[in-house]
């Protein structure tokens, strides 16, 4: 069985939230109706989270001062590729940060609603395409980084990980927490249609995550080590807390929010986000704790 890998739990979950937020901003920017204040908030928060995630990852190393060497084996090591993509994501984020500094509230969309503005620069008249391109490139690099992160765990030695599970679960965390955090950051800056879209993404990711977990769990029993991982999950109180706070409660609360006429239940959205955040941290901890590797101990 594995250990509590706090640096890796923080790195993966926070990194995925950061990239999820940028991904959602990119999606909202498609129709040129991304609120400039939301863009700024999103970029600042995602940058902070990405920085904390990168710093946390250093504490996993026995020699953090030698972390630069982790780029030396791009040919076959997914860990090298992960570091490369996350560094490129951070560089792309710096470009977004520069754009956010240049943006001013210039163009009012709604009558009387001065807080709703398009993401255009006043001074230079820079088109939104720059912003959309920046968000798109950052999202793409981030998603490649997350896929590389997941591929590190696709190891023949660990049957519970040696499948598409890690990639799908990591991407689902990105979508789910990205959408929820964008909802929290957006608040009143989001239009009703945008809120609805983000809530639907959250609900879809939660349902998919639940279904996938059931299928994944049933697949694990195919091997002895996989069954040991499954038993660890099912016998751990952490797993049942995770099931409650990141599947059952969000399903219920998200449906209630979606059914409300104005989708404006701020406190409920914040509650769901905190519950899902806690659930994902517990889920990631269980991911590392339940890892059971094949130990070849006999002659065949």
């Amino acid at each position: 069985m594995g250990d509590w890998e706090w640096p890796l739990i923080l790195f993966t979950v926070l990194g995925q939230i950061a990239i999820g937020i940028i991904l959602m901003l990119w999606w909202l920017a498609r129709n040129r109706n991304l609120n400039i204040q939301l863009f700024k908030r999103g970029v600042h928060v995602s940058g902070g989270l990405l920085l904390i995630a990168l710093l946390a990852s250093l504490f996993h190393l026995g020699h953090p001062e030698a972390a630069y060497r982790a780029l030396a084996h791009l040919g076959s090591s997914w860990l090298s590729r992960e570091i490369l993509f996350f560094l490129l994501t951070f560089l792309a984020w710096i470009y977004l940060f520069r754009l956010s500094r240049q943006q001013t509230s210039s163009h009012t969309l709604g009558s009387g609603a001065s807080i709703i503005t398009t993401a255009e620069t006043a001074a230079g008249g820079q088109p939104t395409s720059n912003l959309s391109l920046g968000l798109g490139i950052t999202s793409l690099l981030g998603l490649l980084g997350i896929a590389s992160s997941a591929m590190i765990y696709v190891l023949p030695r660990v049957p519970a990980w040696n499948n598409g599970g890690p990639v799908l679960f990591f991407l689902l965390t990105t979508g789910l927490l990205g959408a929820l955090c964008t909802l929290v950051l957006g608040g009143n800056l989001l239009q009703t249609a945008q809120k609805k879209l983000l809530l639907q993404v959250s609900l879809g990711c939660t349902i998919f995550s639940l279904i996938l977990s059931v299928i994944y769990g049933s697949m694990l029993s195919a091997s002895m080590e996989g069954a040991a991982s499954l038993n660890y999950h099912l016998s751990s109180p952490l797993f049942w807390v995770r099931a409650l706070v990141s599947w059952l409660a969000p399903l219920l609360l998200l449906v209630i929010i979606l059914k409300s006429p104005d989708l404006g239940k701020k406190n409920l959205i914040l509650t769901v986000t905190l519950l899902v955040g806690l659930g994902e941290i517990l889920g990631r901890a269980l991911f590392y704790l339940s890892a059971t590797g094949i130990q070849i101990t006999a002659l065949f």
């Binding site: 996993h60 190393l61 026995g62 020699h63 190891l155 030695r157 660990v158 070849i296």
Partner: peptide, 26 residues
Amino acid sequence: EKCTGCKSCVASCPFGAPQYNLQTNK
């Protein structure tokens, strides 16, 4: 001299050959 102590090898070897040394952190 090139090891950063990331433990990737420890996790991946099916024979449990690489071991993490807590004294050298490698």
